[in-house]
Amino acid sequence: MTRMKTIKPLVLLCCFLINSALADEAAMLLKSSMADKNFVTLERVERDALQSFCSKPRSEEGDIETANALRESARAAVPMPTEDDFLGDWQRGEAVANNGRGLQYSDNPEQPNGGNCYACHQLDPDEVAYGTLGPSLTGYGARGQSLSMLEYTWIKLWNTHAYNVCSHMPRFGAAGILSEQQLKDVMAYLLDPRSPVNSGLSP
């Protein structure tokens, strides 16, 4: 484990070096083509190692060693609640799942960010306006509330790349989009038997 930790930064450095000159040019070009707007600044054009690795056009493939190193470092950085502290309030979680605002320059930074889950996922079977970029999560509670399910769901929400490097899903916890409490509320929205997400399940 200790040996892995020392190797990782080297692997990430390599990933940067082999990145094509074209990709660097694209990054510089984007920066010179944008302007700060309200609270959103050009800092957002800067990419971290994961973003750079996951920015490759479809035709280019990333190497498996870098992918593994990114996955492991994502997993290692997830703070884990205690076993009895994963689930918040499903009703508040529903509001988070429905709210698509937050972090756009047109948004009010004083208001809490939303999770915008419905943009990509089906959840409550009675909600018709759901997106299909991600899988349907209707009936998610059928998976139960074992410790491993709680941990899996938490990690997936905190940093999806701990399981699936270059998944399209945002890193809701790791990127600071949602607070720990908001994430626990979303956990409850997914897993609580009383949540409408699980209304189709037999009690």
């Binding site: 074209l22 990709a23 040019e25 694209a26 990054a27 070009l29 984007l30 957002r44 054009v45 800067e46 990419r47 994961l50 973003q51 996951c54 920015s55 490759k56 056009p57 479809r58 972090l103 945002p170 890193r171 990127a175 600071g176 989009i177």
Partner: peptide, 12 residues
């Protein structure tokens, strides 16, 4: 094409 796949910002 590079920009089309350029992932950045808080939501990646």
């Amino acid at each position: 094409e590079q920009l089309f796949y350029f992932r950045a910002g808080p939501h990646d």
